[in-house]
Write a protein that binds this DNA or RNA. Structure first.
Length: 578
RNA sequence: GCCGCCUUAGCUCAGCGGUAGAGCAAUGGUUUCGUAAACCAUCGGUCCGGGGUUCGAAUCCCCGAGGCGGCUCCA
């Protein structure tokens, strides 16, 4: 966002607050900044605000804009500012002065009768505003903490011109059509059933077909890269999570333990403890390292009810997990390999719109476990490997895991929300807590370092992202149905069935649309289901041993010998293993 | 979890105090068709669940569940 637009939006937020105070006297105002997409302002209303009020607020804003009052900057002594906002019955502003204003003076901006504590800048006068729209009402905690009171936030957006505003609103509308929850229903990929439970999505045959391809791809890629796959259960004794530290630092996300035969059992929230115990089964020489143990491991985390969403945020999910146990001198090289693997996976899926985030600890939170000096080593190692990879990244203090720094890959979903798609950590803590060891060339005992890595992250979230990036039109290797046969008349059905079986025997996913419908209707349905290829078969094709191939993308149909097309489809269906 | 909104047939939606409707899908029949929707008929509903107000509730009120947006949290 450029500065002009930010100024414009922030000024529009002021006008909105002015309109709200005019329409609803006695409302307490919070803060009202510009955002990447628009602006918002937080209020404590005396009565609850109904969405029907938004047009009224908009109308009042237009009135104000018409009068074009100037934005007037004012510097007054801090104590006078406190007195002013006390007189105006604006306690949150008084609190803000106490928190934020360290100078002897406080800066105010006045627009007509409205006055706000604000650093600016603003447009010269409200007449310069106009292309705006109020969008939604939401709850938001004061100062972003759930311990504080909840305010009512009004979101809006503003642009320099009506045309830009209109195109933005159109973009929002189009984005909603890409939403994986809508496509998941339209293309029959998954469902969330009330009886099974929220946050516990069920994959349909088509969704499961996509999932199997993802699994096949990543398992084969890992196998080629020197990973060894293990298979471990989804529960464990609670004891192991006391050793790992999860019970202490991660408990609120864990399902409660269940007790059987005087023992407590825990549905696992992470896979690392199981993998650590596989690693610890024998003694290691320095020559044996690194050991890379991988698994598509399902974990269970209790997400608050308001947080679950489609496939992107669920309560049971499968991590494309691996734990690399290596010597300290191997750490950087191993971490660089992880970065290369991530890039390779993203290339294979055709994902381009992402950025790397180095998530570090901060000093304000107390959720971190372990020695700060050890943390420093881990953070330095991650930063160094990232620099060596030459890939740009941003640093995010406070975003680390409780046991170590993370390299996260961040993406945005269809409606613009940012999520972590892949996550990777460097961990000195778990090897310590589990007492892992190896023997050095000097016969001494050393502790290995662990890398937790998951290029795909969660299979569920990744699939959600794939659905949205492809807008449901999966590439051939991932498509749940790769080819739909369309017999023109009933007399072609039997021959087409035999043809389809030949494709199935070559592991191709094909369907025959044998309904008593016209060819046009079958084409339309296959097209809407985003099947990559349609094979129309009538008298002409059966005589010539050909298929009339129509592509999902449109363009001319082509007549191809059926065995030739089978070979071609087989090639296109190959996993993108490079 | 919190704030707000929403929930009517398998799907998309109309009805918003007078006792439930459309299109698509499904089923039966007719049609056997050459590149994005053939025609006719039929079936289909505890109007999310529970309580209340009312002569009468899908419609109004309360409680609960689920969904959506946001906040918090997060793969």
């Amino acid at each position: 966002m450029n500065d002009d637009l930010e100024t414009l939006r922030h000024s529009t937020a002021h006008v909105m607050a002015a309109a709200v105070l005019d329409l609803f006297p006695g409302t307490v105002i919070g803060i009202g900044p510009a955002t990447d997409e628009g602006f918002y302002y937080d209020f404590a209303f005396k009565d609850r605000l109904l969405p029907e009020a938004l047009p009224r607020i908009e109308a009042k804003m237009r009135e104000i804009i018409k009068q074009a009052p100037p934005f007037v900057k004012e510097e007054i002594p801090r104590a006078d500012a406190v007195a002013l906002f006390e007189r105006l019955h604006q306690p949150l502003k008084v609190e803000l002065i106490a928190d934020k204003v360290t100078d002897a003076t406080a800066r105010l901006y006045r627009t007509g009768d409205f006055v706000d504590l604000c650093l600016g800048p603003h447009v010269a006068n409200a007449g310069q505003l106009g292309a705006f729209r109020l969008l939604s009402i939401a709850g938001a905690y004061w100062k972003g903490s759930e311990k504080n009171q909840q305010l009512t936030r009004i979101y809006g957006t503003a642009f320099k011109t009506e045309a830009e505003l209109e195109s933005h609103l159109k973009m929002l509308e189009d984005a909603a059509k890409r939403d994986h929850r809508k496509l998941g229903k339209d293309l029959d990929l998954f469902l969330v059933d009330e009886m099974v439970g929220r946050g516990l999505p069920l994959l349909t045959p088509k969704g499961a077909a996509v999932r199997r391809q993802m699994e096949e791809f990543i398992l084969r890629l890992e196998q080629r890269q020197g990973y060894q796959h293990v298979k471990t259960p989804d529960i464990a004794r609670l004891e192991i999570y006391k050793t790992s530290g999860h019970f202490e630092r991660y408990r609120e996300s864990m399902y409660p333990p269940s007790e059987m035969e005087d023992e407590e059992w825990q549905l696992r929230p992470m896979n690392c403890p199981h993998h650590i115990r596989v690693f610890a089964r024998k003694a290691y020489s320095f020559r044996d390292l690194p050991v890379r143990l991988a698994e598509l491991g399902t974990v269970y985390r209790y997400e608050k009810s308001g947080e679950v969403s489609g496939l992107i945020r669920v309560r049971a999910f499968t991590i494309n997990d691996a734990h690399i146990f290596c010597r300290p001198d191997q750490l950087n090289a191993e971490f660089e390999r992880v970065i290369q693997l991530i890039l390779q996976v993203y290339r294979a899926f055709g994902i381009k719109d992402f950025y790397f985030r180095l998530s570090l600890r901060d000093e304000t939170s107390n959720k971190w476990m372990g020695d700060p000096a050890v943390w420093q080593r881990a953070q330095d190692a991650a930063r160094e490997a990232l620099r060596a990879s030459g890939h740009p990244f941003v640093e995010a203090p406070g975003e680390a895991a409780f046991y170590g720094p993370k390299l996260d890959v961040q993406i945005k979903d269809a409606i613009g929300r940012e999520f972590t798609l892949s996550t990777n950590q460097i961990d000195f803590l778990m090897p310590e807590r589990f007492g892992l060891e190896y023997v050095t060339s000097e016969q001494s005992i050393m502790r290995p370092v662990m890398i937790h890595r998951a290029p795909i992250g969660s299979m569920e979230r990744f699939m959600a992202y794939l659905i949205e990036t492809y807008v449901g039109a999966f590439p051939v290797w991932l498509a749940p149905v790769q080819l739909t046969f369309i017999p023109i008349a009933d007399r072609h059905l039997e021959a087409v069935g035999q043809l389809a079986n030949r494709f199935r025997l070559r592991d191709l996913r094909v369907e025959v649309d044998g309904r008593s419908e016209r060819m046009q209707a079958k084409i339309r349905d296959a097209q809407l289901q985003k099947v990559p290829y349609m094979a129309v078969v009538g008298d002409k094709e059966l005589e010539g041993g050909t298929l009339n191939i129509r592509r999902r993308e449109g363009g001319d149909q082509e007549s191809v010998r059926s065995d030739e097309f089978l070979a071609r489809l087989e090639r296109e269906a190959q996993l993108p293993l490079e």
